[in-house]
Computed example of a mutant assay.
Amino acid sequence: MKIIDPREPAAVYSIVLWLVTDLGVAVSGALLIVSLGGFGNIWSPPALDFVKRFSIATNICSMTAFALSVVCFARWIHNASIRAHLFSGGMTMSPGWAVGSYFIPIINLFKPFQAMREIWQASIAPNTTGIVPVPVGMRIWWGLWLVRLGLSNANYQAIASVRNLLDIGMSGALNILTFVIDVPMALLLIVLIRRLGANQRARVEAQIFG
């Protein structure tokens, strides 16, 4: 019977939960565009009030779920980094830095990817990490994450400087576009978590029974 680190399913389920709430934000963005005249007619004040309240509720749920997924993912990658350090002496990023690098501006554009890459390589070939290829899915995941960071910043700027209905509609469009990016990004991350977990379990079993 394989023993799975409970941090792994917690990270996966929290990401799925966040993705579901993120769908709600995208729906609220679509309603916002339509209610403000996306089909030619602006909705009645009561309908606009409903859309506003729905948008606030979905955003609160999404932010809460995102915060939960951040905590669960941080716990998972910290533990995955600890195991990778036990496998290989060639690691350059500590478990703490593998988590903390996500929260430091500029550094969070490249260091988290380096941490994930090192964990992956050490979990496959601890003594020859340099020759282990980086999965295409990991590169795509990171590229999508960088795009999402840019969209989130653009959306924040749009909300912070709302001047007219067009700005509000733009925020709704950004919510939809962000969700389009979030779906493949989240699914790729789940695949990486599952595969990396399987690689590390195989490495542990090889050390015990090999």
Rank of each mutant, 00 (worst) to 15 (best):
K2G: 01
V12T: 09
Y13W: 13
V16C: 00
W18S: 10
T21Q: 11
D22M: 10
V25K: 03
V27F: 06
G29K: 03
V34Q: 10
G37T: 11
G38E: 03
N41P: 00
W43A: 15
P46S: 09
D49C: 05
F54M: 06
I56V: 09
A57G: 07
N59A: 05
T64H: 07
A67S: 13
C72N: 12
W76E: 01
I77M: 07
H78Y: 14
I82K: 15
A84D: 08
H85P: 01
L86S: 13
S88C: 02
S88E: 06
G89T: 04
M93G: 00
P95C: 01
W97I: 07
W97N: 05
V99F: 04
Y102D: 00
I104G: 03
L109C: 04
P112S: 00
F113E: 02
A122F: 02
P126R: 08
V132E: 01
P133S: 08
V136Y: 13
R139E: 10
R139H: 10
R139G: 11
W142H: 06
L144R: 04
L146P: 00
V147S: 03
L151R: 01
A158T: 14
A158H: 08
A160R: 12
L165E: 15
G169P: 12
M170A: 14
S171A: 15
G172Y: 02
L174D: 03
I176G: 08
F179Q: 06
I181L: 08
L196P: 01
G197W: 08
N199L: 12
R201W: 05
E205C: 11
A206W: 13
F209L: 14
